[in-house]
Amino acid sequence: MSFIEVRNLQKSFGPLEVLKDISFDVQKNDVMAIIGPSGSGKSTMLRSLIQLEQVGGGSIRVDGDYLVKDGIYTNPTDSKIINSKMGMVFQQFNLFPHLTVKQNLELAPKLVKKEKANDYGHRSIELLEKVGLASKADELPSRLSGGQKQRVAIARALMMDPDILLFDEPTSALDPQLTKEVLQVMKNLAEEHMTMIVVTHEMEFASSVANHVIFMDDGMIIESGTPEEVIKSPKEMRTKRFLNYELSK
């Protein structure tokens, strides 16, 4: 069974249909890249999975449990459990500016999981080492570069030990040099078989790290397959046009 199963997902903002009949599957250990022009609905789709957006119809199933079934959401207790299996990394990092790097990592384990200081204390240092920022543990986010902030944000998401990480354009706010360090961390996660869905404009990353690529346009999935299929030899006109544009940048 797929880890995430999305069927006939629909969403509208007023009269504007942003998601039209979206269906796809994510398996454990998949790295799925979602590409497409701005306004294609890819961020909305990702945000729907973790309940930052409410969908109007369709189903989302995570690890066998329905978050939404035919447009009807499950009860708050169950949806909280489903949410806790997912972590999210935002384009704008969204670190807590009044807390140090270490406190950013430890807030949720402390408050939500009621972990002991000893447990989350060790893990936060481990994860900061993993993203190469152990030396910044006691700094405030305002003292970090964009790339460092995003690596902290990834570590913060990992603190909750999610089964899957969702990335919403994680490098779009970064310059090329800083983009590289963030993509490296994500690449390492992929090698450790972390399940990930990544909304991205980084075609290089999509083709080299992802094992599955979805191209979205106008609220629909236009093309879906391996990176070789979708990025190297796209079939649809719209995909070709988008890739030409992206790769010429």
Partner: peptide
């Protein structure tokens, strides 16, 4: 206060 602060808190389960 940026709405990203609420979103980050929500996805962390606060």
């Amino acid at each position: 206060i940026d709405k990203g602060q609420y979103e980050a808190s929500q996805v962390l389960g606060l």
